[in-house]
Design a protein around this nucleic acid. Structure first.
Lengths: 155, 155
DNA sequence: GCCCGTTTTCGGAAGTTTCTGAATGGCGAC
DNA sequence: GTCGCCATTCAGAAACTTCCGAAAACGGGC
């Protein structure tokens, strides 16, 4: 197996993992392609060919990944195609979506508490849930701050 | 709408949210039922009735939730049914599964790096991915430690 | 303003997941 | 040892995702 095929294989493995973790399958494959390519940027057509997928589905995946903030468009003068590349902080952004999850869980717990009587077991459970997510809600952004600081001082 | 119905509604909302975040639908509904019930523990039959679902699917959901460590069996002398309840640290355990995700992402990045030439853009990208997940891999357990400490000193 | 290359959207097909209902298996009481 | 109740497993049905391919929409260049 050529080195290039080996990497393509690794890319597909990673894509499978990402989709296990909840990313849409095609988005995952596109992500993996961006990670492993030697080119500085990729176009929709290149991706569709590389992944042997329709341009339609690649277009959808690109849209999603841009929305999540993992990709950015690269201006390439003289080319009418859109060129895309991974953002440096793509993974941080991906993980940051946890923030939103945490926030929603906290909010749900809060609502539950508000609707529950004073001395109820349900309320206690909801309070425990709230406490945990509230902790995470406070701490995760600080964690990211530390990451950026570390990252900045290195690179 | 009665207070009880309002809570049942809230429970279903929460279940929907959990399933948005990747939890299986029935597992999510079961979780929500455990959160909002006033009873100290629930049996399979009670859950199936409350959720208007088959015992089969509830059984599957219970199995999953026990594996994740969010539920525990409660010994109830004189009852031949299994009684289940939420673990106090259920949410922490749920979130802890991120650890495994992070570990796998780190490992995948590592493999990619090993298979990539010295001066390649792909390697740089993989290294950035590795650095981020490695940071998380180190820091998340510490975060949980701090949570447990805080929790312990409160409760 | 028109043309051509590129991207996005959309309907339908294929695949995957999830639920149910019934049968099987297991365990305690007597 | 047998009975009766509970829990689990499994095959099939239903629902939902995801993908493709075609057609519409978009946008520069001239």
């Amino acid at each position: 197996m050529s080195a290039q095929n080996a990497q393509r294989h690794q890319a597909e493995e990673l894509a499978l993992m990402l989709s296990d973790f909840g990313m849409q399958r095609m988005s995952a494959r596109v992500m993996a392609a961006f990670l492993f390519t030697e080119k500085p940027s990729l176009t929709l057509g290149e991706l569709a060919e590389e992944l042997d997928a329709s341009q339609g589905s690649v277009s959808g995946a690109l849209k999603t990944l841009h929305q999540v903030g993992m990709l950015e468009r690269v201006p390439v003068p003289g080319s009418r195609r859109d060129h895309h590349r991974l953002r440096r902080d793509a993974w941080e952004r991906l993980y940051s979506r946890q923030n939103e999850v945490v926030r929603k869980m906290m909010a749900a717990a809060e609502e539950g508490i508000a609707a529950t009587g004073e001395d109820s077991p349900a309320r206690e459970r909801l309070q425990e849930m709230y406490d945990f997510y509230n902790f995470m809600f406070d701490e995760l952004p600080l964690l990211f701050d530390r990451w950026r600081e570390k990252r900045g001082s290195q690179g």
